Amino acid sequence: MIKRTHIRQFLAVVDAGSFTRAAQRIRVTQPALSAGIAELERLAGTPLFLRNRRQIRLTEAGGRFLPLARDLDRGFRAADSFGRESEPQAAELKLGVIRSVPGELLQAIAAALRPSFAIELIENSDAELRAALGSGRIHMAITVLRPGERGGHIVPLYEEPLTMFVAADHPLVGRIEVTPDELAAETMIARRSCEFLGATSRFFTRHGVRPRFALRSESDERCLRMVAAGIGITTAPVSLAIDGIVPLKVAGYDFRRELGLIADPAWTALPDIAPRWAHGGETIGAIAAEWRQFKVDAAA
């Protein structure tokens, strides 16, 4: 018989993406967790996970079992709290976010969702977040939309250009436009969270620019602060601008990105989620419109 412990262990592995992290999350030993998953697979009569050295993925059967496990887990939680509360509990929301989402925007979105949802934030790359959405490990993701990507489960936020940022006292400030080769002697700062990091590198390489790097960091704030300090220059979306740095137009450098919120359609269709999502989606759309007007349009 499949027990609640099996469901808890199964969802822990799905959400954590590894047996080691899952065992830490639910505070059991890894051998105990592995034994529990093996017993669940025996009871289910089929493997639920594909295991290799680099990652754990759901099998086709595991993917079919996942929504059942989610429903069972919600039922167990509801049974635990039955009769103890007069107020309905907030629905759980696992929200994935790429690292380059502006903090102010994320704060506004999280504040809008908080009354309806108990939020857990998960930071990762676009590819990892989309994989997590597909496997049911997260419910929504704020990420970069692909060309033409639209649908009822997608809330476009805003589109913006990327630009080169330099310190406010940089000698090139005031120029209408500079050529890539004029930056050959500059020291660069690499934002590792940049979705166009590889494309930017190829752009400058094509123009014979192979700069020295003063910093490579996942932290956008740290990179931009060091630009303001004058130790290097970097490219970033205009919405990430801070005091002390100035945008500099580089000829031919015309990358743009569109941020959007993508929801799991199956999750938003659940009876207890659909009305919350309908209200939340409208609110987020209004937040994005205001953000675009006062932050993006003004900076661009």
Score class of each variant (00 low, 15 high):
G208S: 09
Q24G: 14
R51I: 05
L248T: 10
H170Q: 13
L105Y: 11
T179C: 15
R54W: 09
A228M: 05
K295F: 12
I273S: 06
A269Q: 10
S201C: 06
R130S: 09
T235E: 12
R77V: 07
R216V: 11
F196K: 05
W267K: 00
P161Q: 06
R192G: 03
T235S: 09
S201D: 04
A184K: 09
V101T: 03
D264E: 10
W277M: 02
L58D: 00
R27S: 08
A22M: 03
V13Y: 05
S217C: 05
A127I: 04
D169C: 06
V166I: 10
K295Q: 14
E60F: 14
A111S: 12
E120M: 07
R84C: 13
R212E: 12
R57W: 04
D254L: 15
L215D: 02
A78D: 05
D71W: 09
G148I: 03
G36K: 00
V296W: 08
E218N: 12
W291Y: 15
L106K: 03
A111F: 13
D254N: 14
R212M: 15
I37R: 04
T200W: 04
T20L: 12
Q55N: 14
R70M: 14
I56W: 10
E60L: 11
K295E: 13
E92G: 06
D220N: 13
I7N: 03
A22F: 01
R150V: 13
A32R: 06
R42P: 03
G198A: 07
D73L: 09
I56M: 10
E104Y: 14
G62T: 08
A228L: 04
S86E: 06
L145M: 01
P237L: 09
L224Y: 01
T59K: 03
L40H: 01
A38M: 11
G36A: 10
V238P: 08
I138C: 08
S81I: 02
P265Y: 04
L259C: 02
E218P: 14
S100E: 01
P265R: 12
E92R: 08
A289S: 14
R4F: 14
V166M: 02
A44P: 04
E41R: 01
T283S: 13
